[in-house]
């Protein structure tokens, strides 16, 4: 049934991914500050914790999100009465997820990427696909925003499928803020791919600069618009700023190092708890990125 009353044009969500090459630079802190600032100013916001190996944002929202959805991957199941043991499925599997033992295929779902190749080559139609749980999507309505996180099943080696499921099932709000995993490998790419803008958080130290260079390499390779936020400015040197200037990379914000902020964060508080005035700055930044600036 179509709700004829709901015919007002909806704005396509504007998605901001917060990422960093190095862990511990303040990614979660800034994603939270951005989401909470927008929610506070009356915007409809979804915050996604895509750091599925170490999801931490809920600690600061003081919430334990409930289970919403199981994330699954399609893995093969062999119909033994039909299988003739020809071994074509094993030949087709690029991930060593099928071995032939005593003339029979043995499937290892943990190694399967879910490409469906084995089913396609099976001449006896002896393979069907069954879902295998890789993690969970959990959500909560809290602090005036819609929160959703992915939680990877323990022992599961691959997070990108879960991250992609998280993004596909994200609550449809005007703003989607993504707390990405750290680094520059597959999980990060999965998290930032569809973003309209990527905020790269770094700290002004040689480690911070080295990892920022890697992160910039990543967003450039994927071809996404991005800018930099320098967290704990003043703690180290000015090399990050100098490098950004040389590379024509916009620095969207500098957050000076303060023991106050560090202490508030340590105790489970957010950046806005330590410095409520920052709220306006985050809202302005988000609006200008979305082309809705004043």
């Amino acid at each position: 049934m179509i709700d004829i009353m709901d015919n007002k044009p909806r704005r396509r969500p504007f998605t901001i991914a917060v990422a960093s090459g190095k862990g511990g630079t303040g990614k979660t802190t800034l994603a939270l500050a951005m989401a909470l600032s927008l929610a506070n100013s009356g915007e409809a916001v979804a915050l996604l914790d895509a750091d599925v190996e170490a999801p931490n944002a809920h600690l600061f929202l003081k919430t334990e999100p409930g289970q919403a959805l199981e994330a699954t991957l399609s893995v093969p199941q062999i119909n033994e009465t039909r299988c003739t043991g020809c071994g074509k499925c094993r030949e087709a599997c690029a991930f060593n997820a099928i071995v032939m033992i005593c003339g029979k295929p043995l499937v290892f779902g943990e190694l399967c990427h879910g490409c469906g190749g084995c089913r396609l080559v099976c001449p006896e139609s002896a393979i069907e696909e069954v879902p295998r749980t890789t993690g969970w999507l959990e959500s909560a309505e809290t602090n005036g925003l819609s929160f959703m996180r992915g939680r990877l099943k323990v022992g599961e080696a691959k997070s990108p499928p879960l991250i992609r499921t998280l993004l596909k099932n994200a609550p449809q709000r005007d703003w989607i803020i993504i707390d990405s995993p750290p680094g520059t490998s597959c999980p990060v790419i999965a998290a930032v791919r569809r973003a309209d803008f990527v905020l790269l958080v770094t700290e002004p130290t040689p480690f911070g600069l080295n990892d920022l260079k890697l992160a910039v390499g990543m967003v450039r390779a994927v071809g996404l618009p991005f800018g930099v936020i320098v967290n704990r400015a003043g703690l180290g040197d000015r090399e990050v700023q100098a490098w950004c200037r040389k590379e024509n990379i916009p620095i969207m914000m500098e957050i000076p190092f303060s023991r106050d902020i560090a202490r508030t964060y340590a105790g489970g508080g957010t950046l806005l708890d330590a410095d409520p005035d920052k709220m306006k700055v985050f809202v302005e930044l988000a609006l200008s990125l979305a082309g809705r600036g004043a």
Partner: peptide, 28 residues
């Protein structure tokens, strides 16, 4: 890249091995 253990199991099975002496074996 992955599945070294299961592939090795296939190798020794194909060689007709009945007893394996090793250090450690993973679950797969």
């Amino acid at each position: 890249a992955q599945g070294a253990g299961t592939q090795s199991a296939e190798t020794v099975a194909n060689a007709g091995v009945e007893v394996l002496l090793t250090g450690h074996v993973g679950p797969k």
